[in-house]
Design a protein around this nucleic acid. Structure first.
Lengths: 117, 117
DNA sequence: TCCTCGTTCAACCTCGCGGTTGAAGAAGAC
DNA sequence: GTCTTCTTCAACCGCGAGGTTGAACGAGGA
């Protein structure tokens, strides 16, 4: 994947299995085998999912004997929340201004009660 | 797409062009032609992007003569932020508890200053 | 040393995504 | 009515994502 960081994070979390992995890693670190156990896919498939999460910066893998404990890196969430909040605020600001406009010219725009249509 | 709502929203925002469309719609509603103008892809491709955003619940399209003004629906953002905040809090809670553990047994775990390695 | 366990690499397959072109609908404008 | 504009539908293409199997690698344990 040669996409921008934001696309990588959104794309990584667009898969339900990967979101579930993130949810479980929020509770405790785990190895690939442990993570793969609940799903009916091969360990290799889960390893690929973890690579996607790692490329997105959502998890990190250390080394501990043969095991590679997977650890959740929650800081990257900020990237998304910042993006989301920015445009949500902007959209809400629009509504607020629209309300102002409607309040300033109620006769022209707002349907008046009792006005025959 | 027959995916769950959360996957649809994350997936919809995983594309930079679609994120840009959302950013522009946060400023003002726009028609398909207006939205397509800045990009060097066909109008049909942009129409497909809008369908993805619509299926995710991020935009709605009304009818106004031949035009179909596109409107941003910011409420769906909540789906994502709720999911993100939940696991971010959980992860931060883990760090907090880990700090407590380390504070309770500093000799066993924490590297002591001046301790020969 | 050899064996076993946990993990990843390599090759392959299928399917859906983002793009194209071309045609069809929908709703004014003439 | 016909024409024009805006938009979407249909068919197609290339490519990458998610899955598989099989083999290789890395690091203890016997």
């Amino acid at each position: 994947m040669v996409a921008d960081p934001l696309s990588r994070v959104f794309s990584a979390l667009a898969d339900p299995t990967r979101r579930d992995i993130v949810a479980r890693l929020a509770v405790a670190d785990a190895t690939v085998n442990e993570l793969a156990a609940p799903y009916d896919v091969t360990v290799q498939a889960v390893s690929k999912h973890l690579k996607v999460l790692e490329d997105a910066g959502l998890v990190s893998r250390s080394r501990e004997a043969q095991r590679r404990p997977v650890h959740l890196e929650a800081e990257v969430f900020d990237l998304m929340t910042k993006w989301i909040e920015r445009y949500r605020r902007q959209a809400e600001e629009r509504y607020r201004r629209l309300d102002d406009v409607l309040r300033d010219m109620p006769d022209a725009v707002l349907p008046q009660e009792g006005t025959p249509s």
